[in-house]
Simulated scan of single mutants.
Amino acid sequence: MSMCQQDVEKVLQQNGKRITRQRKILLDVILNGKWECCKEIYYEAVKRDPSIGMATVYRMMATLEEIGVLERRSVFRMKDDVQHC
């Protein structure tokens, strides 16, 4: 089964997470890039919304890992069945 941003948002909601503007931006950034670290995600996200903090990125990555959308290896990688719609 392939998941897109909308599917990830639904899973977040099912797990009691609000879908904020910042979370939408972070999901878009994460799904549309190949990132080596959270800092790279932060640098891209802050271009779109300067109010996004580094801690927000780390929390989002932890949340995505917690709900099973993302897995941590030596770097974060989106699971193979998650894609941008």
Rank of each mutant, 00 (worst) to 15 (best):
9 E>Q: 14
9 E>D: 13
10 K>H: 07
10 K>C: 11
10 K>V: 14
10 K>L: 15
11 V>Y: 06
12 L>E: 10
12 L>F: 14
12 L>V: 00
13 Q>L: 12
13 Q>V: 12
13 Q>P: 03
14 Q>G: 15
14 Q>F: 10
14 Q>T: 07
14 Q>A: 15
15 N>A: 09
15 N>D: 09
15 N>V: 04
16 G>Y: 05
16 G>N: 08
18 R>P: 10
18 R>E: 15
19 I>A: 01
19 I>T: 07
19 I>F: 05
19 I>S: 01
19 I>W: 09
20 T>S: 13
20 T>A: 05
21 R>S: 06
21 R>A: 12
21 R>N: 12
22 Q>M: 10
22 Q>C: 04
22 Q>F: 02
23 R>I: 11
23 R>H: 09
24 K>A: 02
24 K>V: 04
25 I>W: 09
25 I>R: 07
26 L>G: 04
27 L>V: 00
27 L>Q: 04
27 L>T: 01
28 D>R: 09
28 D>H: 03
29 V>Q: 00
29 V>S: 00
29 V>L: 03
29 V>F: 01
29 V>P: 05
29 V>I: 05
30 I>Y: 10
30 I>E: 03
31 L>G: 09
31 L>E: 02
31 L>N: 03
33 G>I: 01
34 K>C: 06
35 W>V: 04
35 W>R: 01
36 E>Q: 14
36 E>M: 10
37 C>Q: 12
37 C>G: 13
37 C>P: 04
37 C>S: 15
38 C>W: 07
38 C>F: 09
38 C>A: 15
40 E>I: 09
40 E>M: 01
40 E>C: 03
42 Y>I: 05
42 Y>G: 02
42 Y>M: 04
43 Y>K: 14
43 Y>E: 07
43 Y>F: 13
44 E>K: 14
45 A>D: 02
45 A>H: 00
45 A>R: 06
46 V>M: 07
46 V>K: 04
46 V>Q: 10
48 R>W: 05
48 R>N: 06
48 R>A: 06
50 P>A: 08
50 P>N: 12
50 P>D: 15
53 G>Y: 05
53 G>D: 04
53 G>W: 03
53 G>L: 05
53 G>P: 01
53 G>S: 13
53 G>R: 10
54 M>R: 12
54 M>V: 04
54 M>L: 15
54 M>I: 11
54 M>K: 13
55 A>S: 14
55 A>D: 15
56 T>Y: 11
56 T>E: 11
56 T>P: 02
57 V>D: 03
57 V>M: 09
58 Y>M: 11
59 R>Y: 11
59 R>V: 06
60 M>S: 11
60 M>H: 14
60 M>C: 15
61 M>L: 15
61 M>E: 02
61 M>C: 12
61 M>R: 01
62 A>M: 10
62 A>E: 13
62 A>V: 04
63 T>I: 14
63 T>E: 05
64 L>F: 00
65 E>S: 11
65 E>Q: 08
65 E>P: 00
66 E>A: 11
66 E>W: 08
66 E>S: 12
67 I>H: 00
68 G>D: 05
68 G>E: 04
69 V>H: 03
69 V>N: 01
69 V>R: 02
69 V>D: 08
70 L>M: 15
70 L>R: 02
70 L>G: 06
71 E>V: 10
72 R>V: 07
72 R>S: 05
72 R>L: 06
73 R>V: 13
74 S>N: 15
74 S>G: 14
74 S>C: 14
74 S>R: 13
75 V>H: 12
75 V>W: 07
